[in-house]
Design a protein around this nucleic acid. Sequence first.
DNA 1: AAGTGGTCTAGACCACCGT
DNA 2: CGGTGGTCTAGACCACTTG
Lengths: 254, 254
Amino acid sequence: MGTTQLESVPEPKYLHLKTVLSEALDQDFAVGEILPNERELAARFGVARATLRQALEQLELEGRLQRRRGVGTTVAPPRVGVDVGSASQHSWPGESIDGWEPVDAAEEAVLTPALLKLLGSAPGEMVLAVRRSRVEQGQVLAAELLYVPASSVPGLSAIDAPAGPARARAVMRELQKLVLDGQDRSVELGSARAEDAKELDRLPGAPVLLVTTRYFTVAGTAAVSVATYRADTCRLTFGDSGDVQITHDARVAS
Amino acid sequence: MGTTQLESVPEPKYLHLKTVLSEALDQDFAVGEILPNERELAARFGVARATLRQALEQLELEGRLQRRRGVGTTVAPPRVGVDVGSASQHSWPGESIDGWEPVDAAEEAVLTPALLKLLGSAPGEMVLAVRRSRVEQGQVLAAELLYVPASSVPGLSAIDAPAGPARARAVMRELQKLVLDGQDRSVELGSARAEDAKELDRLPGAPVLLVTTRYFTVAGTAAVSVATYRADTCRLTFGDSGDVQITHDARVAS
DNA sequence: AAGTGGTCTAGACCACCGT
DNA sequence: CGGTGGTCTAGACCACTTG
């Protein structure tokens, strides 16, 4: 008798904290609003900073918060719906106006075994790598590496544009002359390599969605794209009628 | 003078640790093999356990490791390619034999504002919720909640199967009589709710891939599915020729 | 009971951003 | 410069699995 056992399975502190914070975000904060700093929040809830951070981390993972070193923690807007192309269409990305910006093209292309397998090309064969980034409303949403075996695009050797965006654009133009026969795509969770992290304005190791696409012509695999999307801000859509909108009913900060 | 500045931008310890471990996994360990425990690993690398854990956490996130409380940390097999349906097909999931197992069906259906919006149905309307789980090779890969407005399926009220799998199966049968007019899909990162976590044999908060699908008939939105996939073990494929295989060249443990 | 990973603490210092 | 989030430490205890 006496002691009431409220929770037979006591919830970890950071999980409880997370739900409490989550509700507070819905009720007491507006999008863009800045939260009290971590030390103060921790004190307010009577936990160590590490515990508080564990809760914040998950909320950021879910796209509810945005944390920036030296600045603070702000309430994130609902995730952007990013169209990744309906699988029924089969088109090179960037054919219509959709935010893909060519960055550079290199001939080296560091090929992992996994990539070689995807390309289905002989080892030692020349493979171009085109770097592009997907920008929307001034924010970089994704960084892409497009691997193109030289053999799949005849006109490739004639390109003499200087390194940089111009060269990348030239490669894309050549590529888009090919008639696509099909494509397949896969999505998985990853963490940003240092290089991509910088491009995405995140810290290395930040969670990202890895979208791997193979482009086929009748001749075989014409190219493989590996696109790295910010997992915190992006919701990938595969719409055939793609106006899916999940909106939090949060007011906009003044 | 004297001190050589080796790294102008010193890499965080846990990141360096991660790459070291990653290489060790490729070279010195076989899939399924069990690693030394965290305390020993930390000591071996001369770091605090928390730091070691930060590295392990990311490797698990990338699907390289699997950690189980009370057991240990093992080398994970390459991610399973899980077909999520080609967007060009438009079929109810589970029409062919694909691992979806009905679990239960309830009439309550806790509807968040976001879900209501997705369903496009009037608030207060009756909405059924069908629980299913996707099992492959004895492992639960995903947990799904299928929301079905009663109004979209005429035969629904006639179902009198007892609660449990039988009831869920009956609802699915009714549903599959409807002719689909289209569907759209979105994928985003989330963390497992306690309920789903249990189903997926993970801890609450574990990273998951949230696949939201809307099914349309000519009459409008017929159903909305929210599927929660284990992000650590699953690679979602949207293949039209779906044999994408990214394999680590790791040997299988004896 | 012993051993594992999971949670939590109270501190310290560092890297970065703004003023 | 002061304030923010990011990294790191050395401990402690808890929850879980297995023999």
